[in-house]
Nucleic acid binder design. Structure first.
Length: 903
RNA sequence: GCCUCAGUGGCGAAAUGGUAGACGCAGUGGACUUAAAAUCCACCGUGGUAAAACACGUGCCGGUUCGAGUCCGGCCUGAGGCACCA
């Protein structure tokens, strides 16, 4: 029997070690390990779809796994786990398609994905996994909602504080009728109900957050039209945190691109509010970033939704109606073509006293600033355009204030303006008319007053409903009404709960209970972002406090049964300065995922984290200290003459042309997808080459943050590398270990130590591709050495195996055990460098004449500058170029370069 | 329009301002083999040469420097983000 390292042997080895890891709990990480720095490495957790994985999906997972294993071998206590994001639209739509309950299909998908990922040898802690749909998880999502609901933003402290503190500051509110008090508090709560313009998407049958609507005014999912509608919905006051979300970007190690995207999304801009007197005793408040240009204002513009229109003396109703009915996409298309109407009103410029006609125009948006502007056509392109169309005079020559500050202080002096800051960020619309999401822990009494449920009543589980499909509409029917599926179960919706003598909802079994009252549950559900807002905290105590079967309290945890996360665990794993790299922000040490979440998930999670910190539940300032965006694996797809996709697998290339069944087809490059017939799965690759080979290939394709084309035929290179590693120490005939107990010679030691230094450096900075190339160089060197000298020393073989371990863990475990070790290689120390062997006897450097390399100098690195110069001059080809020339200057950088400047 | 980022062999890509193309795929030639596969060795930017030498070469044009893929200025192309945000 052959003991060649081929796919079938690789698969045997892989199964053997995966079983071993399972049985030995190898990947379980302990809290509070003495003498090791904690280090949290995680992926943006997957959304398990019915389609299964293609080779692009695990790229990030393999990268974090390699990193986690590397740091584990470098004396860090690594936490590396994976949960599943499982609420949300795709699961629901898949369920509707298959006619099965989303819980069933979702759980099947999770099982399937677990199986696919396990095959890759990912070292995820099995005790820290979960799905966002687990009742024990939902409970805490609802619990966090409660914290946000029960908080307000203290402007003085610039912090979230419990709403009870606000009540203490306003004893007079106690006397108010409950409905009135509820309305007042609603104005303060960080989670609140509002009746305001929201994004209504009839095609999906739900409202959407601004972040979920594209620039074209379509839903990000499904690409359906979205309409602005006044609807009663839940929102979160993320705008109160705009400044902190913006400022704190500075303390985190994220790609500049993502920081910039968040910065732009928050859209802070400094300027001034200016108040203009309007006839009839009205006031017009505008926002401008250029108060210094106020003397050049020749008119004012208000948005079609502006309240001042009520007093318009000209009839502008038709214009306003048309403008309001325009969808975002129409507005987008009409951008540039300025339209508007004179309102008949005039505003008085407080500085020049000039009377400015007030126009209504849809180029001014109600949602930004005050929904009104002063127009300075001389200094603003848009205003100029408008002025030109409507023949409004333009004041080309006017006196500007020398600075914005000057203008503001002048305005403040006369009492008609003040400096201010506005943000583009809007509050986060938080309710959805879906079935497959977390129910709100909210009930309403007979007066429609909202009450939040007691902790003991959590989790509020999803009811069975006759039909979980969302009520969707003709995508263009803007007047349709949202209709939450949870409303279809009256038995669930209407609930009897204990109340005190004031009719206020209280805890089950409370002393003050005087009886039960009928309440109606909130039937909206939370957006799928809710679960992903805090899952990184769940890894710290994954099955804690959820009353789930098999729930185990974390070892050594200080129990805080009333909080989402054990505070001491949070401080240990995520706290500020919890290790030498994380900095003052604290948070997850490494977070890897696609750039598509730049402003959605990442912004929402930061917001929740800040609220939790203000309330004292976490010590870190930010959830994710270092963010890394991996690239995408892309693929070629092929279409025939009809434009129909043909299986990419069966396409052959000849002279740069592509053929399928003898017919020429055309190539395109892009995503991998079922419909494009170009999917390659990790399962296939593992079967064809082995999981270790697949891992090595994915890591060697190029830098992690770059997108790259998939090329199955190139995978063989990774397999050849592992085969050489195998052959270096195993006899392919007998399968026996074949190394010597001699010690390595000097040359080998030098090569080895240089390789260790290089691999360590590359791995530390997340460049597995170059780490692998250094490893290949080492193995190629040793392969040649073995041919000349016979068996490789065991001490050398061990170093090779250790360095390979993070990248190809199964084969490394196998070789490690064959080398006579009984422990798993996962916690063995990564090889250390013997500095003495980093210095060479001789080095070879380039010698230039006038900056052109003419020869190579082989010399001792300890040679003097003089020797470098003299020896360089003697080189034949250098001598040729120096002959008959005058040396003006000799540049000698010892160990680097010699350059003669001649004339 | 504004803001990021990126352009290097046939392909994926390497290069603290110091010998451009490491490493891998594909390709060419050779060794081994009855043969093939596998393995091992050599070559592999373009022109040029018997081989060298030599010339050119990191999107384009300039600049700084003894020396530029790398730094600076100006373009071109591509990708991504934002976009009537006052």
């Amino acid at each position: 029997m052959s003991h060649k390292y081929d796919a079938s042997l690789a698969n045997k080895i892989e199964q053997k070690w995966q079983k071993y890891w399972d049985e030995h709990g190898t990947f379980i990480s302990k809290d509070y390990v003495v003498g090791k720095e904690p280090f949290v490495v995680m992926d943006m957790f997957p959304y398990p779809s019915g389609a299964g994985l293609h080779v692009g999906h695990p790229l990030g997972y393999i990268a974090t796994d390699v990193t986690a294993r590397f740091w584990r071998m470098n004396n860090k206590n690594v936490l590396h786990a994976l949960g599943y994001d499982a609420f949300g639209l795709p699961a629901e739509q898949y369920a509707i398609k298959t006619g099965q309950h989303p819980r069933k299909t979702t759980e099947e998908n999770i099982q399937n994905m677990r199986k696919q990922l396990k095959m890759l040898g990912l070292a995820h802690d099995p005790t820290r996994t979960f799905a966002t749909i687990d009742p024990g998880y939902v409970k805490w999502t609802q619990w966090i909602f409660k914290q946000i609901y029960n908080s307000y933003f203290d402007e003085e402290l610039q912090k979230a504080r419990p709403i009870s503190e606000l009540l203490e500051k306003h004893p007079e509110w106690k006397e108010l009728p409950k409905k009135e008090l509820a309305d007042i508090l609603n104005e303060f709560r960080l989670a609140y109900i509002s009746y305001s313009p929201v994004n209504w998407c009839p095609g999906l049958g739900t409202v959407l957050a601004n972040e979920e609507v594209t620039a074209e005014g379509k839903s990000e999912r499904g690409n359906f039209p979205v309409f602005k509608r006044n609807l009663k919905q839940w929102s979160m006051r993320i705008t109160k945190f705009a400044d902190r979300l913006d400022d704190d970007l500075e303390m985190i190690d994220w790609p500049e691109k993502v920081k910039m995207m968040q910065h732009n999304w928050i859209g802070k801009s400094q300027g001034a509010f200016i108040e203009f007197d309007v006839d009839g005793g009205h006031k017009l408040k505008v926002f401008t970033t250029r108060p210094d240009t106020i003397r050049g204002a020749t008119f004012a513009v208000i948005a079609p939704e502006h309240p001042l229109l009520e007093f318009a003396t000209e009839d502008v109703t038709q214009y306003v109606e048309v403008a309001k009915s325009k969808s975002a996409i129409e507005r987008q298309q009409d951008a540039g073509k300025k339209t508007g109407e004179f309102t008949g009103l005039f505003a008085v410029n407080p500085i020049t006293k000039r009377k400015l006609p007030i126009y209504v125009a849809d180029y001014v948006l109600m949602g930004y600033g005050t929904g009104a502007i002063m127009a300075v056509p001389a200094d603003d392109k848009r205003d100029e355009e408008f002025a030109t169309i409507y023949n409004i005079p333009i004041e080309w020559d006017y006196q500007k204030y020398s600075t914005v500050e000057d203008a503001i202080s002048e305005l403040e002096k006369i009492g008609c303006g003040e400096g201010t800051t506005t943000f583009r960020l809007r509050d986060w619309l938080f309710s959805r008319q879906r079935y497959w999401g977390e129910p709100f822990p909210i009930v309403y009494d007979e007066d429609g007053v909202a009450f939040v449920l007691d902790d003991s009543m959590l989790p509020v589980a999803l009811p069975e409903v006759p039909d979980f499909a969302p009520k969707s509409f003709d995508p263009t029917d803007a007047d349709s009404e949202p209709e939450p599926p949870l409303g279809r179960n009256d038995a669930w919706k209407v609930v009897e709960l204990p109340v005190d003598k004031n009719g206020t909802l209280i805890a089950e079994g409370s002393q003050e209970a005087v009886g039960q009252k009928t309440f109606t549950r909130e039937t909206n559900t939370m957006p799928n972002w809710a679960g992903s807002c805090w899952y990184y905290l769940r890894y710290l105590n994954a099955s804690w406090g959820d009353e789930m079967p098999g729930c185990v309290a974390p070892e050594n945890a200080e129990h805080q049964p009333n909080a989402v996360v054990d505070k001491s665990l949070e401080e240990y794993w995520l706290g500020p300065e919890h290790n030498s790299t994380v900095g003052a922000s604290g948070g997850v040490d490494l977070y890897v995922g696609g750039v598509e979440h730049a402003v959605l998930h990442l912004l929402y999670a930061r917001f929740w984290h800040k609220v939790l910190r203000d309330l004292g539940y976490v010590s870190s300032l930010e959830p994710f200290h270092k963010l890394f965006n991996q690239g995408y694996v892309q693929a070629f797809a092929y279409t025939d003459s009809r434009g129909v996709y043909v299986p990419a697998n069966d396409v052959t290339e000849q002279d740069g042309k592509f053929f399928y069944k003898g017919q020429e087809v055309s190539q395109e490059y892009g995503k991998m997808g079922k419909s494009l017939l170009n999917v390659v799965t990790p399962d296939d690759m593992a079967k064809q080459f082995g999981a270790d080979t697949f891992r090595i290939y994915e890591m060697s394709m190029g830098p992690l943050d770059l997108s790259r084309p998939w090329e199955t035929r190139a995978v063989i290179g990774a397999q050849r590398y592992l085969q050489r590693v195998w052959r270096l120490m195993i006899d392919e005939e007998s399968g026996e270990l074949n190394v010597s107990d001699k010690s390595a010679d000097e040359e080998t030691k030098r090569f080895l130590n240089k390789s260790i230094a290089a691999v360590k450096a590359e791995m530390s900075s997340m460049r597995p591709n170059t780490a692998i190339s250094k490893l290949i160089e080492l193995v190629n060197f040793l392969t040649q050495w073995k041919q000349k000298n016979g068996m490789v020393p065991a001490e050398v073989a061990e170093v090779v195996v250790k360095m390979t371990a993070p990248l190809a863990p199964h084969i490394s475990e196998e070789l490690w055990s064959k080398l006579g070790h009984t422990d798993s290689i996962i916690c063995v120390d990564f090889p250390s460098v013997d500095e003495a062997y980093l210095v060479d006897d001789v080095i070879s450097i380039g010698v230039q004449v006038n900056g052109k390399v003419r020869d190579t100098l082989t010399i001792s690195p300890s040679a003097t500058q003089e020797q470098f110069e003299q020896e360089a001059k003697k080189l034949p080809n250098v001598a040729v170029h120096l002959e008959g020339k005058q040396i003006l200057k000799s540049i000698v950088v010892p160990g680097r370069i010699v350059n003669f400047v001649v004339k």
